[in-house]
């Protein structure tokens, strides 16, 4: 549990369940954190109430704590409060659950595992870091609330599902993978995407470099929605039985991507 709120950023990449498992209370308290330009310890900020198991539960407002669960390979990290930037960046396995909001770069360049954010998330969730070539390589990001700009940019594999709205440029430069947005998508979603699937349940006007390919049912969506339901993520019932208008693009690239926009339940060609 967090003792005191800090307004100075803390780099907390040592707070990973897979690194803490097997450590004693004293060893956990001695783990390093970087507070501004100073090296401090976990004990300076947190009280450790219970040890053992592969689940790490952190309580408090951690909105200034960056890199929580970064590069995690297994176990379960639960944050009861807000979390800072780079939560679960480069994640390889395990589960991160945040009962609050997260800042930018959640799950950036992650390769596996699952991040479930019960609140909102900032910009560039599951995206590529500046200078890298590939964003999210695998795994799942679930956001019950809204997401910021450029989610899943340069995404290569995996799933991002957003219960609310997503900001501009969702799936920009997408290489493959799937992004499901239950609410509205901002402008220029899918810009320069090569492959991959963007799905929205609200009206959306794609860029002129996408071509209308008709309205169809896509039963494969059920494989996603079933599992999302089982994870407690809310998806309208039987949405896969509805018609989706399919836009293919981006024709500025190789044009093998698609944006599926919920249209209705009657086939109108």
């Amino acid at each position: 549990m967090l003792k005191d709120y800090t307004s100075i950023p803390v780099e907390a990449d040592s707070l990973r369940p897979d690194k803490i498992t097997g450590l004693s209370r004293d060893q956990i308290l001695a783990l390093p954190l970087y507070h501004g330009n100073k090296t401090v310890t976990v004990g300076d900020f947190f009280e450790v109430q219970e040890t053992g198991g592969d689940t790490l539960v952190i309580e408090g407002d951690l909105s200034k704590f960056k890199k929580l669960g970064q590069e995690m390979e297994g176990g379960r990290l639960v944050v009861r409060g807000n979390a800072g930037m780079h939560l679960g960046a480069y994640l390889r396995g395990g589960t991160i659950e945040v009962f609050g909001d997260t800042a930018d770069w959640a799950g950036a360049e992650m390769k596996g595992g699952l991040i479930h954010i019960h609140g909102n998330t900032g910009h560039r969730a599951g995206a590529v870091y500046r200078g890298s070539e590939v964003g999210m390589h695998g795994g799942v990001i679930l956001v019950d609330g809204n997401a910021g700009l450029e989610i899943g940019s340069f995404m290569r594999r995996g799933l991002i599902a957003v219960g609310g709205n997503a900001g501009d440029f969702a799936g920009a430069h997408m290489i493959a993978g799937s992004i499901l947005v239950m609410g509205e998508m901002g402008v220029r979603a899918g810009a320069s995407m090569r492959r991959g699937t963007l799905v929205t349940l609200k009206p959306f006007e794609p860029l002129p470099t996408f071509r209308d390919s008709g309205a169809y049912r896509f039963p494969f969506l059920r494989l996603f929605t079933d599992r999302l339901h089982s994870r407690g993520f809310r998806v309208p019932a039987d949405v896969e039985q509805s018609l989706f208008r399919r836009f293919v693009g981006d024709m500025n690239e190789i044009g093998l991507g698609e944006i599926l926009i919920l249209e209705g339940r009657d086939h109108d060609g």
């Binding site: 596996g112 595992g113 799942v140």
Partner: peptide, 24 residues
Amino acid sequence: GHQISKRIESSLSENGATPRRLWR
């Protein structure tokens, strides 16, 4: 060349089953 792969990640299953890959 127009086929599309969709992968259902293992982390999306409760029991962490093998990832499932489908072709459209």
